[in-house]
Simulated assay, not measured.
Amino acid sequence: MSFAHLIAFTAGLLLLYYGAGWLVRGSSTLARSLGLTPMVVGLTVVAFGTSTPELVVSMVSAFKGKSMIALGNVVGSNICNIALVLGLTAVFHPVTTGRVVITRDIPLMLVVSAYLLLLSFNSTIGRVEGLSLFVGILAYTWFNYKVALRVDRTMPGKAVLEARLPAGKIGLADKRWGQCLMIAGGTGAVVLGADLLVDAAVSIMTALGVDEKFVGLTVVAFGTSVPELATSVVAAMKKEMDISLGNLVGSNVFNLLSVVGATAMVRPIVIDGGFIGSGLVVDYLVMMAISALPLLLMKQDLTITRGKGLILLGCYVAYVIFLIVKD
């Protein structure tokens, strides 16, 4: 492993982080300038935009014949979002959510996870299976849109949704040409960043003698979750909780349906060594267990306290240690 590989990996992370930000800001301000309401923009443009790093990294990995990085990226990102991002955020400031997240959103995420588990048992996620996942994300977006139409603008859920939008038009985002430039630049940065990240990760993987599943579940997954992690921790430190468990759950659903679905539609995902033989089934089960953990922690008061946040962080650390020891 050379210093150049570390530089390339770091550059890839930075391009993913800033590129996703430019893409979301440019596309959301453009959509609003064209007359779309903040609610619609939040449910479509911003929701898809924040999943761009995972989507592009998974697609690039699949094209390079590194399917285990592609799938590991999604599974690892979902574990990271709940255990690391939510846990660390709660340590800085307790996170409270609405009951609908417990009664509807998390169970839906678990159902989608179980469906992906079933699709993976034959060790291949083909184009038709990918299409079924992608149809799922379209249905999920449509359902959320219909539900949001019935929610008054003053309701907390709506306020959280609109808080995710970039605040105010500043600089390039003030002009139509600037918005288009930000979209183009953000897209280019994310694509280039994903290419650098995957190539560097493969080189590091080879040098350290670890398999690509491990790299996808840990290093790459953490890298694509950096935007959510940075946003959540900064918001918590400022006590401006524009990130919520509902948003993280939504991000996980998008990862499972749109990222895996779109990647498989472009190029079927083949699980090297088999779903059981590769041990990926264990990672799926860990993802589902950690995804269900907030149901137990928030059953009484709908709040992730600092103590509960430490439990989530402990689960993430334990999982990473398990992966290191196993490999």
Results as ranks from 00 to 15, higher is better:
residue 171 G to D: 05
residue 172 L to Y: 10
residue 173 A to I: 03
residue 174 D to Q: 15
residue 174 D to I: 10
residue 178 G to W: 03
residue 179 Q to D: 06
residue 180 C to M: 15
residue 181 L to I: 13
residue 181 L to W: 12
residue 182 M to I: 03
residue 185 G to K: 08
residue 191 V to M: 12
residue 192 L to N: 02
residue 193 G to H: 03
residue 194 A to K: 05
residue 195 D to R: 12
residue 197 L to N: 10
residue 197 L to H: 09
residue 198 V to D: 04
residue 198 V to I: 14
residue 198 V to M: 07
residue 198 V to F: 06
residue 199 D to P: 00
residue 200 A to G: 06
residue 200 A to S: 15
residue 201 A to T: 12
residue 201 A to Q: 06
residue 202 V to R: 08
residue 205 M to L: 03
residue 207 A to D: 04
residue 210 V to L: 13
residue 211 D to V: 02
residue 212 E to C: 06
residue 212 E to I: 07
residue 214 F to I: 02
residue 215 V to A: 06
residue 217 L to Q: 11
residue 218 T to H: 01
residue 218 T to P: 01
residue 220 V to D: 01
residue 222 F to A: 11
residue 224 T to Q: 11
residue 225 S to C: 14
residue 225 S to I: 08
residue 225 S to G: 08
residue 229 L to M: 12
residue 229 L to E: 02
residue 230 A to E: 03
residue 231 T to Q: 10
residue 231 T to I: 14
residue 231 T to D: 12
residue 233 V to D: 02
residue 234 V to H: 08
residue 237 M to F: 06
residue 237 M to N: 03
residue 238 K to G: 09
residue 238 K to H: 14
residue 238 K to T: 11
residue 240 E to Q: 15
residue 241 M to I: 07
residue 242 D to L: 12
residue 243 I to F: 03
residue 243 I to P: 01
residue 243 I to A: 05
residue 246 G to S: 13
residue 247 N to A: 13
residue 248 L to I: 13
residue 250 G to A: 08
residue 250 G to Q: 09
residue 252 N to A: 05
residue 253 V to F: 06
residue 254 F to H: 02
residue 254 F to N: 02
residue 257 L to M: 11
residue 260 V to C: 02
residue 262 A to D: 04
residue 264 A to P: 13
residue 266 V to K: 04
residue 267 R to G: 05
residue 268 P to M: 00
residue 269 I to D: 00
residue 269 I to H: 00
